[in-house]
Design a protein around this nucleic acid. Sequence first.
DNA 1: ATGAAAGCGCTAACAG
DNA 2: CTGTTAGCGCTTTCAT
Lengths: 334, 334
Amino acid sequence: MATLEDVARLSGVTKSTVSNVISGKAAVREKTRSRVMAAIDELDYHPNLAARGLKKGKTLLFAVLVPTLQNPFYAKVMDVITQAALDHSYHVILCTTNRDLRLAHQHLQELSSRSIDGLIVMSIGTEFAQMLNSIPKDLPVVIGDWQGETYNVPHLPVIDIDFHTAGLIAANTLLDLGHRRIGVILEQPAHLKRLGGFLSGMTQRHITIPPGLIRAADPTLHSGYTQALELLQNEQRPTAIFATNDLMAIGVLEAATQLGINVPQNLSIIGIDDIEETSYTRIPLTTIALPKVAYGMTLVEHLLHTIEHPERQDANTILMRPRLITRASTGPNL
Amino acid sequence: MATLEDVARLSGVTKSTVSNVISGKAAVREKTRSRVMAAIDELDYHPNLAARGLKKGKTLLFAVLVPTLQNPFYAKVMDVITQAALDHSYHVILCTTNRDLRLAHQHLQELSSRSIDGLIVMSIGTEFAQMLNSIPKDLPVVIGDWQGETYNVPHLPVIDIDFHTAGLIAANTLLDLGHRRIGVILEQPAHLKRLGGFLSGMTQRHITIPPGLIRAADPTLHSGYTQALELLQNEQRPTAIFATNDLMAIGVLEAATQLGINVPQNLSIIGIDDIEETSYTRIPLTTIALPKVAYGMTLVEHLLHTIEHPERQDANTILMRPRLITRASTGPNL
DNA sequence: ATGAAAGCGCTAACAG
DNA sequence: CTGTTAGCGCTTTCAT
């Protein structure tokens, strides 16, 4: 690899001048400028960011801690984050924790030797709070979708998705369609905020959901299917089912198909997330879309902002609002 | 952040001695050693890898170019790669290309300023071959699942998954069960190798598949569903369907359910990939598992090996073998 | 066994 | 406008 020195020698100036040409900070005579540019071209010179980083204390590199990419939500968000980073000439170091505190620590440990400009930590809760203390206080950090009950635990900015509102929207959508007997398929404990929003929507309209209609499930298609079968074979079966994520909602649709129940005539189904598959099922699913793109972009923008203005590191919470997408799986309660 | 200098001062020695303690390369008297260690502890010193990298020319950092994380295959492989990297004290820079040549170029461009130790490029074909030329020849590179027809294009090591064999296994499995009239749902052009293997299996047993039974699809559940509906409403419908990935196979299952066709009694279904969902469908799907974990690990190990022994950079191809997983969706042709 | 000094590639005053 | 100088944090001869 060619260095600044090489370019300087070839164009008959010093490193400083070449540096000036590149940064554009100081004025350079047009003639020398073009000579330098020619040399840069000829040598195919690329500045060494590690060296620059050493000098300036900025590496144009940040890290992202994420539980797993196997959840389509995180996969999509990571795609967005790397893209947004590239747009700002940043690169991202990917660290998957598998929700394992030890792995997370190990990553943080190794990262502490790495001069990164910032860190995004996605989807952790109170049990990780202690870990956050081991992060140097001068490293810009933003938390993505904090899983704790309250937001006052870390004194760090949090970009969250308003899962409570997502649940509320689900409730209102079904209530507005005239449904009163509504089943819920819930991932425990990850989706308790969604359930909270849903139940508060119900309470506002003075509807109570019998406990038997709320069923715990794993966040898989199959688990949604199994739980839905049980709900639907109940003597007093619900006229609508709210699944706290789309994968389970697809399972519900399968169960309905299996039992010969028409959707949406005899059963409305609503999910949360808006994963790609929901538009591709036989009956496209109504769902509450999580703003994955906006979320990823905001994470990056917020982080870069903090990196550039470390003086006013705010520790507020930004709630990204989800949005109803009406498709074919919901209809009026006949 | 504390520096070597700080540690040296606190322990009353020079930087060189501290460096020796850390690297363990030169002998250090036990007494000074422990004094240095104490200082390291007290100051919570972490070596600055950027500085070390500048000096030694090794950053313990490599980059991975991958089309998208939204395909569960890549998501899984990336999880494996980051994990394997961490085990060797490496970190990985994630670059998603979205199969866009321009984006790929942009990433490579930015990466050329980054002193990375190596590069993994996943899932590219001949159209990207030119791009590979713009990679500095002294940068260790390994290609993951090369999409080109032949392997002689890049003079770089290739770790590939033996998709041809995967297709062959599908063919043999169905033939052994007595199926003769077999439909194929194929992603074009990504899965042509799989089709090739399948057809060669058929040819070996002197079975010909009428062109009408091979249907092009997108790699989505819905597309599999649609194409399967058409195949199954044919007057002479197939007794088995081979879908070139699991998502489409799930769609086939849905179509069968919809038409009241029993699986596997009246229709066998086989897919490729072994994504998580295939074990969770109503009828768990028989599939040909791609060795994602072994694949990811091999990529990393091969890369690190090349980094450590740049002198004998081999340019061979390693084919990772897929493996049949028999579940409930296949049965004898009655 | 430890220290002194040079240098990896770059930027940032400061001089001229 | 351009050159000189110093130094970011580390490793590595080479002396001592």
